[in-house]
Design a protein around this nucleic acid. Structure first.
Ligand code: MN
Ligand code: MN
Ligand code: ZN
Ligand code: ZN
Lengths: 145, 145
DNA sequence: ATATAAAAGCAATATAGTTGCATTTAAAAT
DNA sequence: ATTTTAAATGCAACTATATTGCTTTTATAT
């Protein structure tokens, strides 16, 4: 396995973004998690390593470049996950289902579950679909049993 | 057609809610619109007829009783629409698709479009589905042509 | 080494939503 | 009709998420 930080540095360069501390740290954090990460959580773990505003701008830049994608949870707060691949500044390909666990509140990207096509009333032109499922994640429904 | 206000008053009584100005006004506003209505808009048109906090509490009470349902738009702000029917304090039946127009930003309840069932990975237990489509609504795609 | 555009930091502001408590009021009881 | 009371409203303070403008710092190209 190649050095992770080196990979991130390449990713930044490829997207015309400077290699900075806050950016590397955000990539580090997001890549180490199995579910989408909320802005508040990121802010907390970054602590004084970066200003709040810097964090917001890092997230915005990453989203624009197609490095991460945003998912709003049931409360409307932003959560971020690294894009699997094929996403770019010009187009995101994250039309997978997101699963919001009622118990642990994690948001999973169900990359394998595609959103089924939809029949809408005449005149409506669908551009994107955004499906959030709620319920119990695999780990939480285990514990309940 | 029976008097609208009288209908609203019955609705409040049926749900054990007192017949008050702010509540009737919210029902009046919501029923007069063809799409979901945002909290900020409601706040604005209510003006000084009710305190912000009262509005929040009215909306919360209505949602709990199954009189209205909440839809978050792409920015995560709350929008409200009157439940078609069959909703109660114990269960909502609003699993229809919501359409968020990129142009006019209206949110339409597509009551006729049911959300297709979903195959999720083993272990996950789906409780609710929340599908938001974005694009152009019928009226806006007309204007563009 | 120097120049420079990009990024970060800082302060102020905006907007959505919540909480606690005092006051008012709709509706029930008398 | 009055009185009673639980429910609802209003007000003030507060929290959380997000944004904007401006200054300073810094990564990178020259
Ligand atoms: Mn995702
Ligand atoms: Mn609806
Ligand atoms: Zn869970
Ligand atoms: Zn429209």
């Amino acid at each position: 396995m190649e050095n992770k930080t080196a990979r991130f540095e390449k990713l930044l360069v490829k997207n015309g973004l400077k290699r900075t501390g806050p950016r590397l740290q955000v990539l580090e954090i997001l890549s180490g998690r199995d579910s989408a990460t909320s802005q508040p959580y990121l802010e907390q773990v970054m602590g004084k390593n970066a200003d709040r505003v810097t964090l917001y701008r890092v997230l915005q830049a990453f989203e624009e470049k197609g490095i991460i994608h945003k998912v709003l949870d049931q409360q409307g707060t932003a959560n971020y996950a690294i894009c699997s691949d094929g996403c770019s500044a010009h187009e995101h390909h994250d039309e997978h289902v997101h699963f919001n666990c009622d118990n642990c509140h994690k948001i999973y990207c169900l990359d394998t579950v595609k959103i089924p096509a939809l029949k809408v009333p005449a005149g409506f032109k669908v551009e994107h679909l955004n499906l959030i499922a709620t319920g119990l994640c695999a780990s939480c429904s285990d514990k309940v049993n």
